Amino acid sequence: MDISLLLSMTDRVTALGTPSAMHPESWQLCAQVETWARGRGLVLGDPDTSPLGRARCERLAARVFPDADLAAVDLFARWLTWTLALDDAMDHPPLADSGSAVHALYDDLLRAMRRGHARPGARPLEAALVELWHATSRNMSRDWRRRFMLHLEAHRDGCAEEAVNRRIRHVPAEAEYPPLRRRACGPFLYDLVEPVLAVELPARLLRTPRWKTLADSVADVVAWSNDLASHDLESARGDVHDLPSVLGRAHGLDAAQAAQAVADRIADRLDQAWTAARRLPDMLDRLELTVAQRAAAAQVVKVLLDTPRAHMDWLAESGRYVSDSPPGTLRLDALASLR
């Protein structure tokens, strides 16, 4: 599988028809984010020799937020880099097949956030997280900070469940997979839309079924698109936590049929996201939101609806899911952050 199927969808799915814009100052981000990642020990050696180094997170940030303040986009790119570094660690022993190891790592991370500083000699993942949290949370309310922490805990639980599944060789059932994938695919990243835009959404809006449909649909589209891009690499190491594998097993599909089934589901989920978004104005009226709250909601909705195409465009230019370097080539990846 490759992303050509995803790119072909941009011609037949209206919601994907417009190419994502790029932040006009994106050229500055590459050096800034790479310098930060190296300085924090998340990327070591030649960036082209590791999936994290090849990811080009700043390109995704610049596409998701083409009009935002450059410093805020830079912060989001750093969060993406940290998240992918954590994801790389989760894909390899000792975390890949041990739920208790995942919980132990996350215990260290969450304690550091609550304490406000990393331990002396802490692994890079911990130290970088505390730095990012300080920079992000200082202007956000207690409710937002609590929501973000809850989504980190959901991510921990999703990754731990995946680790157990790998150990016992359990392939998630079709109905079981979407919520599991949603938890394991960085749900806290979507909370970051608000600090990047310097807004905050009221809790009563976020609790409505219509908002949840919009947010979950976008998260699923991004996760399932990622599944198509990463399927070959995951399959090679025996990992079945991707939608093509789940649908292939559930319905007896070959690789091409499974990929097409995923594409069809992505199109359906996008339609659900846009339908929910079109129905939001009536809900905003019923909730009696202020003018400022309605404007904030409109900004966040635009980013959410633009994200699937931005993500697909990023997949086309990122080297994260290409094969690793040939044997004998220096390869230093995010596992270094656990040593």
Rank of each mutant, 00 (worst) to 15 (best):
I3P: 01
S4L: 02
L6T: 02
L7G: 00
L7D: 01
M9G: 06
T10Y: 00
R12T: 15
T14I: 03
W27M: 14
Q28K: 14
A31N: 10
W36N: 00
D48T: 12
D48Y: 03
P51C: 01
G53W: 00
C57T: 15
F65D: 13
P66A: 07
D69F: 01
A71T: 08
A71N: 12
A71G: 08
A72K: 11
F76R: 09
R78I: 07
T83N: 14
P94C: 02
P94R: 09
L95R: 01
D97F: 03
A101G: 12
D107R: 07
A112G: 01
M113I: 12
G116L: 03
P120K: 07
R123V: 10
E126Q: 15
H134W: 15
T136I: 02
R138G: 12
R146I: 05
A160S: 11
V164W: 07
E174R: 06
A175M: 12
P179N: 11
R183F: 09
V196W: 13
L206S: 02
V218W: 06
A219K: 12
V221F: 07
S230D: 06
D239F: 09
D242C: 13
L243D: 06
P244N: 04
L247N: 09
L247T: 07
L253G: 06
Q257P: 07
Q260G: 08
I266T: 02
R278N: 08
R278K: 14
L280D: 04
L284F: 09
D285R: 12
V291T: 12
Q293V: 07
A295E: 12
A295H: 09
A310Q: 04
M312R: 00
A316E: 11
A316T: 06
D324P: 04
D333L: 06
D333N: 13
L338E: 10
